[in-house]
Computed example of a mutant assay.
Amino acid sequence: MNPIDQLAALFDGPGAEDYLGEAVTQAEHMRQAGALAEAAGAPDELVAAALLHDVGHFHGALSGHDLMAGTDNRHGDSGAAWLAQWFGPAVTEPVRLHVAAKRYLCAVDPGYQARLSPASVHTLGVQGGPMTEDEAREFEGNPHHAEAVALRRWDDEAKDPEAKTPGFDHFRPLLTRLLENR
């Protein structure tokens, strides 16, 4: 199966399940994030990262259900590692860093944590809580930190059960253009 069809199968299969305490499915959440990035005029690589940011819930030793049960599934890392077989760092690094970006924003943006959904507040605690000042400075030194923060903000907004969101096929041409290892 080609990579795009593998991704589509994730959206149609495990992605069709509930999104860990949110009012949308996991696939709806990821498609909403991709659509928000696209509407913001983000580069193709960042649109793809927003669309694919949570695939690690399906590709790792631990699932998203483990995360909700209190064990960090490190889904940013596992998702980025899996996606790296097809996409470059401009896609995979924001995916890898999107959890760190949540921790970062909680540390540097007064009021950010209060805007998180209850499920996201729960996972924040499992994922290490807000960053320390030293961790925040180190995060800011990462060349992909700004993209990860942008992705994180779309991630937080992408939980609207009323949103009209394009299907996965809308993103196929963009993903196909970005494939590095066909």
Rank of each mutant, 00 (worst) to 15 (best):
N2Q: 08
N2M: 13
P3T: 00
D5Y: 10
Q6L: 10
Q6A: 11
A9H: 08
A9Q: 14
F11P: 00
D12H: 13
G13M: 03
P14Y: 09
P14I: 12
A16Y: 09
E17H: 12
D18F: 10
D18V: 14
L20D: 03
G21Q: 07
E22Y: 14
A23Y: 11
V24T: 10
T25D: 09
Q26S: 14
E28G: 13
E28M: 13
R31L: 15
Q32K: 04
G34A: 05
A35P: 00
A37L: 04
E38S: 11
A39Y: 08
A40V: 07
A40Q: 09
G41Y: 10
D44R: 07
D44N: 11
A48I: 00
A50N: 09
D54I: 03
V55F: 00
F58S: 11
F58Q: 12
A61C: 13
S63M: 09
H65F: 15
H65D: 14
D66W: 04
L67F: 03
N73R: 03
D77M: 07
A81I: 14
L83K: 00
L83P: 03
Q85S: 13
Q85T: 05
W86Y: 08
F87R: 02
G88V: 06
V91E: 00
V91C: 04
V91Q: 02
V95F: 00
L97D: 01
L97M: 05
K102V: 15
Y104R: 02
L105R: 04
A107M: 09
R115Q: 15
P118T: 01
V121C: 08
H122I: 05
H122F: 10
L124Q: 05
G125H: 11
Q127L: 07
Q127R: 13
G128N: 01
G129I: 06
T132H: 05
D134Q: 15
R137T: 12
R137K: 14
F139T: 05
N142H: 11
H144S: 04
H145G: 04
H145K: 06
A148F: 01
A148W: 02
A150W: 04
L151C: 02
D156M: 06
A158I: 01
P161R: 01
E162I: 07
T165V: 12
F168Y: 05
D169Y: 09
T176I: 02
L179N: 06
N181E: 12
